[in-house]
């Protein structure tokens, strides 16, 4: 029937199977949603530490994609896991330097509101 939604059409067995059977695409959806949440946090938050936390969320989403991709490629491949270890190391370095920069900025201007950090604006 056109124009009306039949509840039995929604609850088709194939659709239930597609939802319940976890495939790599499910992980990609989760990672994409988390990445966009992190992007939104970077864009809307005012506190510099909150922005750094949102960047960590985005890196985390990338790790989910890599691990799911490596698992989908085959159980005996370790490239994805090695990449994730590198990403975690780089994320740790980024967090250290970012927090040090935030502390230095805080010491300078007694505030870490990024709306006010405009002294380097052209």
């Amino acid at each position: 029937m056109i124009g009306s939604i039949n509840i039995l059409d929604i609850l088709k067995p194939e659709l239930i199977c597609a939802i319940v059977r976890v495939t790599p695409t499910h992980y990609l959806y989760v990672a994409g949603i988390v990445f966009c949440i992190g992007l939104m946090g970077v864009m809307i938050r005012r506190n510099a530490i909150a922005i750094l936390m949102s960047i960590e969320l985005m890196l985390n989403a990338v790790n989910i994609v890599l691990i799911a991709g490596g698992r989908a490629y085959g159980p005996k491949t370790y490239d994805a896991s090695s990449f994730v270890i590198f990403i975690i190391a780089v994320a740790a370095a980024e967090a250290i330097v970012g927090l040090a920069l935030i502390l230095a900025a805080y010491r300078h201007m007694k505030d870490i509101n990024i709306d006010d950090m405009s002294i380097m604006k052209w």
């Binding site: 495939t23 790599p24 959806y29």
Partner: peptide, 24 residues
């Protein structure tokens, strides 16, 4: 910012709906 990231999420889900990946 909220609009841009919501649009990004929308297009990302649009693309993810189009691709097919084999099961694990």
């Amino acid at each position: 910012g909220a609009f841009v990231s919501a649009a990004f999420l929308f297009f990302l889900i649009l693309i993810l709906g189009k691709i097919y990946l084999p099961p694990f």
